[in-house]
């Protein structure tokens, strides 16, 4: 279970103090696939980073009763000057996973061909996305945090990710942020709307999407 208790997050910017999350209270349980809908700039990625624990809330707290992935998207989590294979070795080492099995899995799942041995900075954005996803699946988290880019990229790979996540449906949770209702419909069983720094959960997916599209 992941619980957010009165989570606030604000940043100091050139334009002054800016509050992005203004008191988010929410619980995510194992096996849930939750889509978080929000317009551009609503704070979706910030929410994901706070849930992941890579940024600290300004106020409030996040309780993690299960292992949570890093936020999967384009940026972050990888080192660009080393190869995909070296990134896989690094991930295996810091998460205490067997080296060879991890390498094999990532090579197989990411389908990078000979690029697997080349520096990540030479990859296309689609390749980076595949590598990132493969790395996180290799670690085998209880909860996956996904930024929409992963879902909308390469459709064949999107299908494989969907399948990989579906296989884990029983034990894995998924938190997917998107500004597109279709993406959420394809991956999730329930949804929430992030608006004005607050998160509203809906048990019914259609109701959430209708509400989102009306707003």
């Amino acid at each position: 279970m992941i619980a957010l208790r009165g989570v606030h997050k604000s940043y100091h910017t050139r334009l002054g103090h800016r509050e992005v999350l203004g008191g988010v209270d929410c619980v995510f349980r194992p096996g849930e696939q939750v889509g978080i809908l929000g317009r551009n700039g609503a704070g979706k990625s910030t929410l994901l980073r706070v849930v992941a624990g890579v940024e600290r809330p300004t106020r409030g707290r996040v309780e993690r009763g299960m292992s949570v992935s890093w936020p999967l998207g384009f940026a972050g989590a990888m080192h660009y000057s080393i190869s995909g294979a070296d990134n896989a070795r690094f991930i295996a080492r810091i998460y205490g996973k067997p080296l060879v099995a991890t390498l094999d899995f990532v090579e197989d799942f990411a389908e990078l061909g000979e690029y697997f041995g080349m520096p990540v900075r030479t990859y296309s954005s689609g390749m980076m996305m595949r590598l990132g996803f493969a790395l996180s699946l290799a670690v085998d988290f209880d909860c996956y945090l996904v930024d929409e880019v992963v879902a909308v990229g390469d459709t064949r790979f999107g299908e494989r990710c969907r399948k990989a996540l579906a296989e884990r449906r029983e034990r894995s949770a998924l938190l997917l942020v998107s500004h597109q209702a279709e993406t959420v419909r394809a991956f999730c069983t329930s949804a929430a709307i992030l608006h004005g720094g607050r998160l509203t959960r809906y048990d019914d997916l259609d109701q959430a999407i209708a509400q989102y599209e009306a707003g």
Binding site: A52, V54, V68, W70, P71, A77, M78, H79, I94
Partner: peptide, 9 residues
């Protein structure tokens, strides 16, 4: 900085 995406780094 990108490595800080792994919570225990």
């Amino acid at each position: 900085q990108s490595l800080l995406y792994h919570r225990h780094v």
